[in-house]
């Protein structure tokens, strides 16, 4: 372990604190900018209908055991029969989500806006940190780490003799980027976190594919094992009443 470095207090006043404060403020700014830029999507009648059907099917699946077998079967037939069931999607009608996205330019611009509002501030802050604070040892983490973390924590300093627990300013930026997520979810509410995950989903899945989720719901309904809960509710009521009487 190398002997302790002496860090100038000016580094604390002009690098460490400003960097952290700026990261927090930029996070808040990003939240409000993306909130302003978010255009309320004009609902397409077909999409809304399919979404509602999926929700209804899900409700049926969740509450299946609370209705008699006969009514469950009737409802399941209503949803998933092969001729005109609500969840049944004819083969030719199932369209490619990619093609659907190109036919609807609104969706593409909306997604681009979301991605831009995420990427632009990050690149800007990174460039800012790089330009002003490159090469500082800005902080020291209070626990020892192995050499493997050198590239992660001392990004921008090419000295192999400095103890690994010293953190360069660029790496401090990254630490802030990941560690402040919790703080944001507290001060901005959960909307922030939900937004991020939604963005991930959109990047991965490239939009919402209605026909796919419809058929997935259909499969889920088909394999469900129905077991009516009412007969056993009498037992339960009995035990509850017994407890009350005691």
């Amino acid at each position: 372990m190398a002997e302790d470095l002496v860090l100038d207090t000016a580094i604390r006043d002009w690098v460490l604190i400003p960097l952290s404060v700026v990261m927090v403020l930029i996070g808040i700014l990003r939240y409000f900018v993306s909130k302003l830029m978010r255009s309320s999507p004009t609902p397409d009648a077909k999409m809304v209908k399919e979404g509602q059907v999926v929700i209804r099917a899900r409700n049926l699946k969740a509450g299946a055991n609370f209705i008699p077998p006969k009514s469950f079967r009737a409802r399941r037939f209503y949803f998933s029969n092969e001729e005109n069931g609500l969840l049944h999607v004819p083969k030719d009608q199932a369209q490619n989500p990619q093609a659907q996205m190109f036919s609807d330019p609104n969706m593409a611009t909306d997604m681009m806006k979301k991605n831009l509002s995420m990427i632009i501030p990050q690149t800007l802050t990174f460039a800012w940190v790089n330009f002003f604070f490159s090469g500082f040892v800005a902080a020291k983490i209070p626990f020892p780490l192995t050499q493997r973390f050198r590239s992660m924590l001392q990004n921008g300093i090419d000295l192999s003799t400095v103890d690994v627990s010293y953190v360069s300013s660029r790496s401090w930026y990254f630490l802030n980027l990941f560690g402040l997520r919790g703080l944001f979810s507290l001060i901005l509410g959960d909307e922030n976190a939900i937004d991020d995950t939604q963005r991930m989903m959109q990047m991965g899945g490239f939009g919402f594919d209605a026909s796919k989720s419809l058929s997935a719901e259909k499969d889920g309904l088909d394999i469900i094992q129905h077991e009516w809960a009412l007969p056993r509710f009498e037992l339960r009521a009995e035990s509850v009443l017994r407890k009350l009487v005691q």
Binding site: L7, D8, T9, R12, I17, V167, L175
Partner: peptide, 19 residues
């Protein structure tokens, strides 16, 4: 929570003890 903990731990520790 661990990530937030480490970040704020480092931050406070640096402010108080390192400089």
């Amino acid at each position: 929570g661990l990530m937030s903990f480490v970040l704020f731990w480092t931050f406070a520790y640096d402010l108080v003890h390192i400089f």
